[in-house]
Simulated scan of single mutants.
Amino acid sequence: MTTTLITGANKGLGKETARALVDAGHTVWLGARDEARGRAAADEVGARFVQLDVTDDASVSAAIATISEAGTGLDVLINNAGIAKWGSDFTESLDSASVLEVFDTNVVGIVRVTEAALPLLEQSANPVVVNVSSALGSFWATHEPSRPASSFVSLIYGSSKAAVSMLTVQYSRAHTNVKFNAVEPGITATELGGGDPGSHPGRPASVSAQVVAKLAMIGPDGPTGTFQEDQGELGW
């Protein structure tokens, strides 16, 4: 049985990824800051709930301890938790507090959780880490006229996802026994940045979750140090 931890998974892409992996036979730990919402989401998809705030060292340590004590082991970590500070017109908040909050969640949060989880992951026969990134963090996609990312300005969120991409590369080199990959899930109708999924132009989270789940299910001969999307590898 493969055991997977997903951060920020009480709604949207994280919850739908949890649903897909439960359906594929994984034991899924659904991580969420809010206990009531997290437990409800876990019950809905058939996962286990663990309280996890990626911006809080103590919360992260406690979550990994809970998984360790449960005896399930840990084979896959999906760093899904992420935020954006966009207004209704997709104008970003550029005050220092907002910028720090985005980077603390999207970038430092990955380091917090990954570092805490690595001792458990390294006990697995097939350890995998999937970092949810974005084409807005791809230098190639933001310079390629055929890509939507080339015409959407995102100073802070995009920069944070560029950092996620580099973390993926460097972690893959630092821990060669673990497969680290970044994923662009596609333009997805979620509440990221405070929007209304019902009026979002993106595709359903259940569709975007498929590419995340696919990377979570790679075998021992799977890729590492890559950036993936539906069609295959994405340029950095």
Rank of each mutant, 00 (worst) to 15 (best):
G219W: 01
Q210L: 14
I187L: 15
R147E: 15
R147S: 13
Q210V: 06
R173Q: 12
G186N: 04
R112N: 12
E144I: 06
L120T: 05
S208W: 04
T4V: 13
G193Q: 06
A205V: 01
S61H: 14
A213Q: 00
V113C: 01
I78H: 03
A117D: 07
A116H: 09
S208H: 02
K15D: 00
L192I: 14
P185T: 09
L120Y: 05
S160P: 09
E16T: 07
S138R: 08
V169P: 00
D43P: 05
A63S: 07
S159I: 03
T176E: 15
G198C: 06
I156A: 00
V107M: 06
A42G: 03
A125M: 14
A62D: 14
D43Q: 12
G232A: 01
T2E: 12
G87A: 12
V153H: 11
G232N: 02
S160L: 08
V130M: 02
G109S: 04
G194C: 06
D221Q: 10
W236Y: 15
G137K: 09
H175P: 01
S159T: 11
A213T: 00
V60G: 03
T4P: 06
V111C: 05
A58M: 10
F90C: 06
L21D: 05
I64L: 15
H200C: 11
V22Y: 04
A18R: 08
L77C: 05
A32C: 04
T188E: 04
L136S: 02
A162F: 12
H200K: 13
S199Y: 12
D57V: 14
N10H: 11
M166V: 13
V28Y: 00
D23Q: 15
A65W: 05
E44K: 03
A47F: 09
W140S: 14
V130D: 02
S150V: 00
T17E: 08
